[in-house]
Design a protein around this nucleic acid. Structure first.
Length: 625
RNA sequence: GGCCCCGUGGUGUAGCGGUCUAACAUGCCACCCUGUCACGGUGGAGAUCGCGGGUUCAAAUCCCGCCGGGGUCGCCA
């Protein structure tokens, strides 16, 4: 033991305390309470803040659990008071003193320990600290670059401490919940074989086999299916996944999933399991949240029709409606040409935005254009008429106004549940386009009008996804989910004849507009699996090369099985009320996939490259050159 | 790769052609202060206004390019 601690420590500690944290520390700060009054305790932690009154010095001592006030009084311990003079923020200290009740009137109700203070008579500076580059003890926004560069300091701040703790509690809850239901935690390897479909792989060169590479798993998908073949029946894992794609606020190159798989089940088993899990989790860890029960259920078609998205945020309305029939004979080119080409006119009504300025309407139009639409047709309704019935053309403002009659406007307004004073947004074109535009505008307007309550949790299962989609760029069929997803029973015969009509047995769990989990019932018959691979234009050689191990495994008998994977980072983000998963990941990458704390990625030595049989192609760069 | 936003003492902001020799808050340093708790008081140090170029009599401020960061589209089976 390097640090000197007070003598006699071991002697009195055992007789006075129910528990002893460690040799340097008797208890956590949050454990200071009336039961310890008049007792001598030894605490250790960080100087959160100092208030120097010249003679009397107060220090707020912080540890992971909380804060307590230390009082240094020269009349109690002169030498100790002297040392306390030199304390600065973030110094790490150990103190011994008497737990005292504060003088009447000086209690601090904001602190859990605010009725007490430690009358310190011994102080040891365990570690001096430079002044940190940003506040540890305040919540002020700090440039994220700086935060990531000094992440170990950022993590000292209460916001990040709480996020870290919440993440721990979430994972502990999940483990308990699943283990009570007979799931076993099985680890799967990180160094695996690259399978070129899906996202880009992170590759790891082999030293032993020149020119060969491992890949990091994008998910443990194939391995968990093999575990079902192996008879594990109920598997779960808190698994790291790796995808070399561009980051987003809710996407990182490496992320954590709750991965699970079950045998002898169908969709309902999985959906019920996850609903019980997340319901219990939210109610236990965030009892003040408003949880909508039971979880909503939408088909993919319904979600796209009503919300323009397969991950709709159900905390607010602004539902999309089809107004094509009202505008069928319209002379307004935007509408007529879209309908003529087989598209539709769909729209949403935004409450109270009928007074939007030219500039604000232009912003909405720009948003529509930014995702590839020609724009959005805005129809502003004056707020003066009492009801829609009383509205007249002079109350209607739109570039399409002169092509509309009042009956059409009323019909559209009624269809969209619009009232006087509302703003109607109309998009025309094929469904994929109008869905994208109206989804984006719906979310934008909800943001502006603050319609989404961050303490409301509105889960929603989306089911009935198509199994395949047409990849027009490469003129081939591709899996919507992944190639192991089972078609529903009644569509199996359509795989070759009408692949676009095949419904899958996949399901997503959506929370407040974020895809929080996704999974499916898998194919467990080798013949059906082969049929799917062939539709996806794999030759028999490619099937053998890429999926031979799966096909062979299934030939030894595979139980019906299915599973789901849930994004832990996104879940914790929403529970923490954060808007980026970086806030709930201790050491995240930035948007350019760099780790600013460690400076990764970085060049490596010529020797390392040589050993891996790797020769760098582009103009630079070897470490130290 | 496209589009949008941001870049001013350590931190957070203000300033948006001349008054800037750059302001405010906080932090930092020194001194004073015995009941504070975002303690208080006095004084002090601290910024080539991200970088480069241009316009102008004059640029933190306007324009162009670059760099860095964030958001988003593409991408993410």
């Amino acid at each position: 033991m390097k640090h000197s601690v007070n003598l006699g420590y071991n002697h009195w500690i055992s007789s006075h305390f129910p528990r002893r944290i460690s040799v340097l520390k008797d208890c956590n700060i949050s454990e200071i309470n009336r039961n310890l009054l008049s007792r001598t305790v030894t605490l250790a932690g960080w100087v959160d803040r100092r208030r120097d009154h010249g003679h009397l010095i107060f220090i707020d001592l912080r540890d992971r659990s909380g804060v307590v006030q230390l009082a240094f009084n020269p009349e109690v311990a002169a030498g100790t008071h002297e040392t306390a003079n030199s304390l600065r923020n973030e110094y790490i200290i150990q103190v011994t003193g008497v737990v005292s009740r504060r003088p009447a009137g000086t209690e601090n109700p904001k602190l859990l320990t605010g009725d007490f203070e430690i009358a310190v008579n011994r102080l040891t500076i365990l570690s001096a600290a430079k002044t940190p580059p940003f506040y540890i003890n305040e919540e002020a926004e700090v440039d994220e670059n700086v935060r990531l560069r000094y992440r170990y300091l950022d993590l000292r701040r209460s916001r990040m401490r709480h996020n870290l703790m919440l993440r721990h509690q979430v994972i502990r809850y999940i483990r308990n919940h699943l283990e009570e239901r007979d799931f076993i935690d099985v680890e799967t390897p990180i160094l695996i074989k690259s399978t070129p479909e899906g996202a880009r792989d992170y590759l790891v060169p082999s030293r032993v086999y020149p020119g060969k590479f491992y890949a990091l798993p994008q998910s443990p998908q194939q391995m968990k299916q093999l575990l079902m073949v192996a008879g594990v029946e109920r598997y779960y894992q808190i698994a790291k996944c790796f995808r070399d794609e561009d980051t987003r606020a809710d996407r990182q190159p490496e992320f954590t999933q709750l991965d699970l798989e079950m045998s002898f089940i169908d969709e309902e088993d999985i959906l019920r399991l996850m609903e019980e899990l997340f319901t219990g989790l939210v109610e236990t860890l965030k009892p003040d949240f408003r949880l909508v029960k039971p979880f909503a259920r939408l088909t993919f078609t319904e979600a796209m029709e009503r919300f323009g998205s397969d991950k709709p945020d159900l905390r607010y309305g602004l539902e999309i409606k089809d107004v094509s029939s009202i505008l069928a004979g319209s002379e307004f080119g935007v509408f007529s040409s879209a309908i003529y080409a087989g598209g539709r006119v769909r729209g949403i009504a935004v409450p109270g935005c009928g007074g939007y300025s030219r500039r604000e309407l232009n912003e909405l139009n720009d948003i529509a254009r930014s995702i590839g639409a020609g724009g959005v047709v805005t129809v502003s309704l004056d707020s003066s008429p009492a009801t829609i019935e009383e509205i007249e053309m002079q109350d209607v403002h739109s570039i399409a106004a002169k092509y509309l009659n009042i009956e059409q406007v009323k019909a559209i307004a009624k269809k969209l549940d619009a009232r006087p004073g509302d703003l109607i947004l109309l998009a025309a074109g094929k469904d994929s386009l109008t869905s994208a535009v109206l989804d984006k505008l719906r979310r934008e307007m909800a943001l502006r009008l603050q319609l989404a309550d961050s303490k409301m949790f509105h889960f929603c299962y989306v089911t009935g996804f198509p199994l395949f989609y047409r990849d027009e760029a490469n003129s081939r069929w591709d899996s919507v989910h992944h190639p192991f997803t089972s078609p529903c029973e009644e569509d199996k015969h359509r795989i070759e004849s009408e692949p676009d009509k095949v419904t899958s047995r996949a399901y997503d769990l959506v929370l407040n507009g974020f895809e929080i989990a996704g999974g499916s019932i898998r194919i467990h018959e080798p013949d059906l699996q082969r049929k799917v691979f062939r539709l996806l234009a794999y030759t028999d050689e490619q099937i053998e090369e890429r999926f031979g191990h799966m096909m062979e495994a299934f030939s030894y008998g595979a139980p019906p099985h299915g599973g789901i994977a849930a994004g832990i980072d996104r879940l914790v983000m929403l529970l923490a009320g954060e808007s980026s998963i970086r806030e709930v990941i201790p050491f995240p990458k930035n948007q350019n996939a760099q780790d600013l704390t460690f400076g990764a990625p970085d060049y490596v030595s010529a020797e390392q490259l040589d050993e891996l049989h790797i020769c760098i192609n582009s103009e630079n760069k070897l470490k130290g050159k």
